[in-house]
Amino acid sequence: MIKLERVYRTYMMGGQPLHALNDVSETIEAGDYVAVMGPSGSGKSTLLNIMGCLDRPSSGSYRLEGQDVGALSDAELSQIRRHKLGFVFQTFHLVPRLSAAENVAFPMVFAGVPRAERLERVGVALEAVGLRQRAEHRPSELSGGECQRVAIARATVMRPRVLLADEPTGNLDSVAGRQVMEVIEHMNAEGLTLVVVTHDPAIASRAERVVVMADGRIERRVTGADLANRAPAIVVPEAAR
């Protein structure tokens, strides 16, 4: 599904090259549930942006479902984001002036899906996150957990192959956070490939596989169960911040 080979992402900072990603190789199969862990600045968000086709590798190759993404134009990348990828953000990124239903319909509007079909699919997507009865509410009238579930409905309404979540529980309390994780894990159980970026070992340990990053490199790979048992030994101290 996702195959990264020797990927670098380099920024120039004051004339000095800064490797946000430094020789990262990783393969994620269809239906996988992978957590990416690491302290801030370790490159985990950059990795997610590259997997999400929001950013391009400086060097190395990225193949998504066998397609070499690095060679594609901006327009082609936006097609891939539209049809194959779904994003969930720490800050939800809901459009405040639109209702929950309109937020969910958002990607379909830009994909040119007819109105009748949109209404039907919005209903299904909101049902899947348990918010059908909140469809007409604005984000300001919803709790944080509800907002994130609306965002998940929006991310999955185009039936993507991969769901990329960047600190999905970062702005939520533990109860709401657990609810959100249960919703996306349920979708994973039905075959959706799931990549979650987090600095929280409790969230990361729910995944089948955990990739631990530091300084732009993949430092180690462990299973979620391993992480749950020996978290202090695996997570470098500053990562716990």
Binding site: Q79, V95, F106, P107, F110
Partner: peptide, 16 residues
């Protein structure tokens, strides 16, 4: 700006 970012993330092309 953030809304534009979201538009890009959900696959809206630059012409859109």
């Amino acid at each position: 700006t953030a809304e534009v970012g979201l538009l890009k993330a959900v696959g809206a092309g630059n012409p859109q």
